[in-house]
Simulated assay, not measured.
Amino acid sequence: MAARTDEIAPGATSLAAAGLPPLVLEAKDALALVGSNALSVASASLAHRRTALVAARADLVAALTLEAIGANLSPLGATVLAARPHPGQQVSGRRIREVLADGDLAQGVRPTASLQDPISVRTVPQVHGALLDQLDDLERLLDVELSCAPDNPFLDVDTGAFISNGNFSITGIAVAFDALRIGLAHVAQLAERRVAILVRQLRQGVPLVGQVQHVTSATGYVTPLILAQTASALVAQVKHSATPISLSGTTVGDGIEDHASLAYPSIRLTEVALDHVERLFAVEALLAVTVIAVQTRTRPCRLAGPVQRLRQAIVDVTRRSQTTAEVVDWVVEALRREQRGDDLAEMRAPVTPPPVSWFDRDVARHDQLH
């Protein structure tokens, strides 16, 4: 007899009702089902890929802002960055130079606005590069984890001995993702400070009514001050998530399981931080496009090709929006689509559903009956 959907039934009964044969486990299958390492390593690999995409997006959005404010581009030069040859900052600087290469600002046709810009502008390759170096270290760690045998007990094939061990511990992944969120937080801090620079340009000497009128033509009724407050809230959440979670475990299992890496919670918290960072980049890009729109009315100039494409993509999507939240969401998607040269979809692990408690079942059953 088929089990009712509102009752708990043995697994065999439920499988039979669904017409599914029971799974026959083979060697190591049971351990994989009850252990969390496979889930953690797989989720870590997806989160690593997504972070790499977001890091590339960070360079693209920063380049958009540099173009908008007429930044001094000399700190991005290959020679000056090579004087401190960390691999990450070389990559970040090169990507930004490539984005800006064919515009009037990079060609020297448009004068720079100042001799020395704020730190959030002139240290972009260094701060973004630190995150890229972290990603390189994490990739090497994941290469090992994806190719190893973390079994306990371990079977020594040569001697036939089973050896009790601790290779199941993935503390390295937990610590790496705790550190990765700190790197993301520094990138977010720079973005929020650049947002403040853009807002200052839009608000300088312009009353609130004028600000609304300026922005309406470019982005659809989003005032700079509202976006600045949004950026402040987002960066606060990213910084809060940077607190290490891998040190928060407790002893379980009567003192035998007396250490847990908490790798999976660390990975999931990183996914949340990435969501906030992407929305922060959308706010920065939205304001940068608005600054460019205001400036080009009086001082037309030739924008770099990638900047112009991104600007047009943002203007197109904001015309379809009805609320500030929709504007930001559409810009997030526009930034993802504009990330050329990458044929992979946005990488992220599926959200794990929360466990269903007896209380939840009782409430659901009560609602069905009444």
Rank of each mutant, 00 (worst) to 15 (best):
L286F: 08
L286T: 14
L287D: 00
A288L: 06
A288G: 02
A288I: 01
A288P: 02
A288H: 06
T290G: 08
T290D: 08
T290K: 06
V291K: 03
V291D: 05
V291T: 09
I292N: 01
I292A: 03
A293C: 01
A293Y: 05
A293Q: 08
V294N: 05
V294H: 06
Q295R: 05
Q295T: 03
Q295C: 12
Q295P: 07
T296K: 14
T296A: 12
R297S: 14
T298K: 04
T298W: 05
T298R: 15
T298H: 13
T298I: 10
R299N: 08
R299V: 14
R299P: 05
P300T: 00
P300C: 11
P300S: 03
C301S: 15
C301M: 12
R302V: 10
R302I: 14
L303K: 00
A304I: 06
A304K: 02
A304C: 01
A304S: 13
A304G: 02
G305W: 04
G305Q: 11
G305D: 03
G305Y: 04
G305E: 13
P306E: 00
P306W: 00
V307W: 00
Q308R: 13
R309L: 10
R309E: 09
R309W: 04
L310R: 12
L310Q: 04
L310T: 01
R311Y: 07
R311H: 07
Q312L: 14
Q312A: 14
Q312V: 15
A313E: 08
A313N: 10
I314M: 10
V315N: 11
V315T: 15
V315E: 09
V315K: 13
D316P: 04
V317P: 08
V317L: 06
V317Y: 04
V317G: 08
V317T: 15
V317S: 13
V317A: 11
